[in-house]
Simulated scan of single mutants.
Amino acid sequence: MHKIIAHRDRFRALLARVQTDAAISTAIAHPCDELAVAAAVEAAEEGLIAPIFVGPMPKIRAAAQLAGVELAPYRIVDVPHSHAAAAQAVALVKRGEAKLLMKGSLHTDELMHAVCADGGLRTDRRLSHVFLMDVPNYARLMLVTDAAINIVPTLMEKRDIIQNAIDLAHVIGIDRPRVAVLSAVETINPALPSTVDAAALCKMAERGQIVGGIVDGPLAFDNAVDATAAGGKGIVSPVAGAADILVVPDLESGNMLAKQLTFLAGAESAGIVMGAQVPIILTSRADAPRARIASCALAVLMVQAAKAPAAVMMES
């Protein structure tokens, strides 16, 4: 039986893992409302990021005044509009002037367009969003993917979505995450394509096309998170009832699941986009301050983890 850690302590433990001796330079694309500016300044005051505000300077200064924060310590790159802000923020990352990219008050698809443009921040891996959720009465942190980027992912895109989530799980200390590929039922039914994809993804994991985690599915949500529900259906699985990662069939189901956990179950959430050359911090107007800080902490942990192997090699 897993001990249930008090709600909110798990995000506090996550923040404690971050080395805050050197804040990570972060390009903030179009931070032109008070919440976007406040989120960046909050993270800076926590020692997580060194923000570079990219957008129309008058709008950024007006937003800072509304938020009651001081911008004097921070660099501002003045550009005329949100499209230019997204492009310039990506360019700062490409030039090495920023190690992270953070969404301000522009639309997610506008920022992703700049990320995915020629000369942007794409890699061979499909981009995907991962929510890290601290859900009351669940025995572990839960990752939900993808609820923000891929609308109806293909089988191979789901492979990347899973690998991205496993990589993030490793960074936060889950050595061999249990991955539940969700559907409405636990048996394979050609009328439900998500069940067929789930079966294929499990075989791909067996053959080394997905590495670093234990993948099982199809699993319904209750069987993925509740051992009693799984046992009642005779499901024998190392993942059932103990999932670390929930892989949803499509963006609609993922978005609804994440918001239900937040607004009905009282979960705290943080989220980043994986698969680009750098982690991308996505925040929402509905995010609580702790969620915004946790999202920045996740991205910083990714940067620090990427540096760790080089540091080990230098020591040896």
Rank of each mutant, 00 (worst) to 15 (best):
R95L: 12
P177G: 00
A308V: 03
A205C: 08
V247K: 03
K259C: 06
A139K: 12
V300T: 11
I28W: 09
G213S: 02
M256N: 07
L121C: 09
P73N: 11
H2P: 15
P80S: 08
A114P: 03
A44G: 05
A62V: 05
R176C: 05
L155N: 02
P190Q: 09
T262G: 00
A199Y: 09
M112E: 00
V247D: 00
V54Q: 05
G55W: 01
V37Y: 01
V215D: 01
A72H: 13
M142P: 00
K158R: 12
P218L: 10
L192M: 15
E70P: 01
P289S: 09
A220W: 04
G208F: 11
R126K: 14
P51L: 06
A87V: 12
S183P: 06
V181T: 10
T262P: 00
L155T: 08
E70F: 08
A13K: 12
I4F: 11
A72D: 15
L15H: 14
L14N: 09
A311T: 07
R207G: 01
I245S: 01
L48V: 12
V215E: 00
G104W: 05
M156Q: 13
H83Q: 13
V312D: 01
L219C: 08
G212W: 03
E97F: 02
Q209W: 14
F263M: 05
A169Q: 00
L182H: 03
L71G: 13
G266W: 03
A291D: 14
L264R: 02
A114H: 03
S237D: 12
R159Q: 15
T283L: 15
I162G: 06
S237N: 11
A311L: 14
C202Q: 13
I214S: 01
A89Q: 04
Q277M: 14
G212K: 03
H83C: 06
I166E: 01
I166K: 00
V181F: 11
L92D: 04
M313F: 11
L48M: 08
D21N: 14
A306W: 11
D216M: 07
F11L: 05
A89F: 09
L92S: 06
E70C: 15
L168I: 08
A267V: 06
G213K: 01
I49S: 02
V303F: 06
M57L: 15
R178I: 02
H2R: 15
A270H: 07
H170P: 00
A148C: 12
L251V: 06
T145N: 03
A40K: 03
P279L: 11
D9L: 14
I76H: 08
T283E: 09
V248N: 04
A44I: 10
P58I: 13
R126L: 07
C116N: 07
G232C: 04
I162F: 05
V248F: 03
A191K: 14
L257W: 10
K203T: 15
I4H: 15
K158C: 10
L66I: 10
V152M: 07
V215Y: 02
A36Q: 04
D9V: 10
P136N: 07
P51R: 04
N164T: 09
T108N: 11
R140E: 10
V144E: 00
I24T: 14
L246C: 03
V181M: 11
G254F: 08
V239M: 01
A27N: 09
R159M: 11
A243W: 04
L35M: 10
L35R: 14
V196T: 12
V215L: 02
A242R: 14
L282A: 09
A39F: 13
A117V: 06
L71R: 12
I52L: 15
L261G: 05
F11E: 10
D134L: 07
